[in-house]
């Protein structure tokens, strides 16, 4: 099982109406990889993530999670997800940080069951990892965008997932906290051997932290290790991304 890729995408195409946003995508993501998925706006990054997460239906091609076809994959609790919109949740929702993080254990606990006895410990550990343990009893809507985003990371990791997918998690987070945020991801990857997929615009900041890079602009222009990526000339990189991506 060791060599089974965590995510394997084969000949994936996806279109909205008649317009293909993804063409012939082939990717393998292995256990312990820290993959940065980069590309300009409208390049299909979020679409690809939504397909992997099962939020969109696969039209053409195949996606395998842990060797299983996506439609037969049931162990969703192995996957943590942090979405782009810090405010995708209903702001003004009357819940504490603790309750929100605890909700990350819902699938793992199962229908018609109460949360396990060590829930408090698990939640507090997750909050400590994101250094937000002091906020456990605060209302989620009182926190800043960056703090909320850290809470959502805690929610994503509380069930100790094997794969963590983050869709532009630093949108709306102030610069000072972005670095802390990436440090945290690096730590999760190194210490827990968690596989990470990070969708981002911010290639300059992540290039020294990730292990692999995939450049997407409807088709996959590059996919490989950071070392290979660094061998590319500046001109090639610019042509990969088009515009709108910060290049170091």
């Amino acid at each position: 099982m060791e060599h089974t890729p965590v995510v394997e995408i084969k000949n994936l195409y996806h279109r909205y109406e008649y317009d293909y946003v993804l063409k012939n995508i082939n990717i393998q993501i292995h256990k312990g990889d820290f993959l940065a998925l980069i590309g300009p706006n409208g390049s299909g990054k979020s679409t690809l993530i939504k397909l992997i997460l099962g939020l969109l239906k696969v039209q053409e091609g195949e996606i395998f999670l842990y060797g299983k076809p996506l439609e037969y994959f049931r162990q969703r609790e192995q996957i943590g997800y942090v979405s782009q919109k810090a405010n995708s949740f209903h702001s003004g929702f009357p819940a504490t940080v603790f309750e929100v993080v605890r909700s990350g254990l819902t699938k793992k606990t199962g229908l018609f069951r109460f949360f396990p006895k060590n829930t408090k410990e698990l939640v507090m550990n997750a909050l400590e990892t994101v250094e937000m343990e002091k906020f456990a009893d605060r209302n989620i809507s009182e926190l800043s965008g960056g703090q909320q985003q850290r809470i959502f990371i805690a929610r994503a990791i509380v069930g100790n997932p094997d794969l963590l997918i983050l869709d532009e998690p630093t949108v709306g987070v102030d610069v000072k906290h972005v670095m802390q945020f990436y440090d945290l991801l690096e730590r999760l990857n190194r210490e827990r051997n968690m596989t990470l997929v990070l969708v981002t615009h911010d290639i300059g900041t992540v290039v020294n932290r990730v292990s692999h890079i995939a450049c997407l602009n409807r088709t996959l222009h590059f996919h490989g290790s950071v070392a290979d990526f660094n061998k590319l000339g500046k001109k090639e990189i610019t042509s990969l991304f088009g515009h709108g991506v910060e290049i170091p």
């Binding site: 969703r76 997800y81 995708s88 949740f89 309750e99 254990l105 819902t106 699938k107």
Partner: peptide
């Protein structure tokens, strides 16, 4: 009572609820 967890997550963040496989 039985569906409290699921109802909570569905009300709080529907997208996350679906991603979790609920």
């Amino acid at each position: 009572i039985g569906l409290y967890k699921e109802l909570f997550i569905l009300s709080f963040d529907e997208e996350y609820c679906r991603v979790s496989g609920i």
